[in-house]
Every structure is written in C-alpha cells, then in structure tokens.
C-alpha cells in the first residue's frame, strides 16, 4: 500500500509536512543536518522558499532552519498527502 510520494525537499509545496527518508549531501553538510535533527524518520514542514530559486525554510523539531537549495535538493522526503485520501 505504498501510495505515498517520494521526492526531494525542493519539490515540496509550501506548508507541506513530509517525512525525511534520506540525506544525500556531502559528509560535512550531512553531519550538520543530522546534528540539527534532520535525520531519516523526522517530520519536517516546508515553510517557504526564497524567491529566485533561493534557499528553503523548513520547520524541524519546532524551530526554523534555512537550507540552501543545493542541499535541499539532496534531502529526499516522503509526503503522505495522497495517503490521506
């Protein structure tokens, strides 16, 4: 029954709540994101993205983080939106 959608964080819509599946960034960036709580299984909410294809603001564990688009595109998430129907 895997109807949920897998995509990268940049493709998510504003306000969407998604679950992190994996982070495919480099060693340092990955470590940083993991330290900040972006680990597989964690729910994050995409708050907004900056104009001109800029960085993305997400809410993770109750606080806002801004992540450059390059890294955000390497964060793979699952959105449950479709399952609700």
């Amino acid at each position: 029954m895997e109807t949920s959608l897998v995509k990268c964080l940049t493709e998510c819509e504003k306000g969407e709540i998604v679950t992190v599946i994996s982070v495919n960034a480099g060693y340092k960036a990955k470590m940083r994101l993991a330290n900040l709580g972006i680990i597989p299984g964690v729910k994050i909410k995409k708050k907004k993205s900056a104009p001109l294809k800029g960085p993305i603001e997400i809410v993770v564990k109750g606080s806002s983080l801004v992540i450059g688009r390059g890294i955000a595109s390497k964060i793979i998430v699952r959105c449950k939106k479709e399952c609700e129907f």
Binding site: R32, L36, P55, S64, I67, G68
Partner: peptide, 12 residues
Amino acid sequence: GECTELIMEMHE
C-alpha cells in the same frame, strides 16, 4: 577548500 552551502537557523 570547498564552497559550503547555507544551513542557518532563523529564530523568531
């Protein structure tokens, strides 16, 4: 060294 990307907290 490599060019790092933005990872930053945005507090209220």
